[in-house]
Design a protein around this nucleic acid. Sequence first.
DNA 1: CGGCATCCCAAATGATACTG
DNA 2: CAGTATCATTTGGGATGCCG
Lengths: 122, 122
Amino acid sequence: MSDANAQYGFNGKNFPCATELSISLLAGRWKMTIIWKLREDKKRYGELKSSIPGITHKMLAQQLRELEEIGIVRRYVYPVVPPKVEYELTGLGLGLLPILDRLNEWGEHFRLPDREGILSNR
Amino acid sequence: MSDANAQYGFNGKNFPCATELSISLLAGRWKMTIIWKLREDKKRYGELKSSIPGITHKMLAQQLRELEEIGIVRRYVYPVVPPKVEYELTGLGLGLLPILDRLNEWGEHFRLPDREGILSNR
DNA sequence: CGGCATCCCAAATGATACTG
DNA sequence: CAGTATCATTTGGGATGCCG
């Protein structure tokens, strides 16, 4: 029973509404972080990995491949040994940045009190 | 081992970046849809349910409660029999609408070809 | 160095049924 | 009409190891 009214879709995800599709494309655990890290420069796989505390090897590789499939990032492979691979945002990915800025502002509503008070408490 | 650098959080979700928190708050399977449906008027539970094809009773109730907790929707209970409950966007929820518009535009990149051609195919 | 496969667990979602 | 609870299923993500 497929969704006969789906008008927006990508790779098996289908929605009647473009917004829902967008969110579902961005919803992976690390996708936003990765896009964020690539907002200025392209980066090597290892650079990305060490700039994202807590991400696992598997997830970084997997999410990058999904972002690549979607068309948000582009992958450059240098034919050298040992391998060197760089990732950068595509036009589609760059188009996301202003939206992320807005989401960032919206998220300010949930800022937690900082901990200086606790750390310096007496 | 908690994330000592988390600065944005809500109800157990914690991130160092406001954007990531925002996405995680909106990432539920039906949250965007519900917000979208409430963008103009408040609606009764049953209205929402029948306006969202495929959503289950459980998920609608659950996602509504999460949206309420976050502060995106407000719930009005009329003390009548049978029960009558209405939901509407709060100020925080309304603040999301312009962002959703942008995500909607971005999602246009993934519009599928419509099916008139198929349906009217000979 | 970077990619991929496998196994496993936890979280999210769906189906169904019961309640005021 | 609207809300909860329970159980089954699916999905996402973490750990680990092997490969070119």
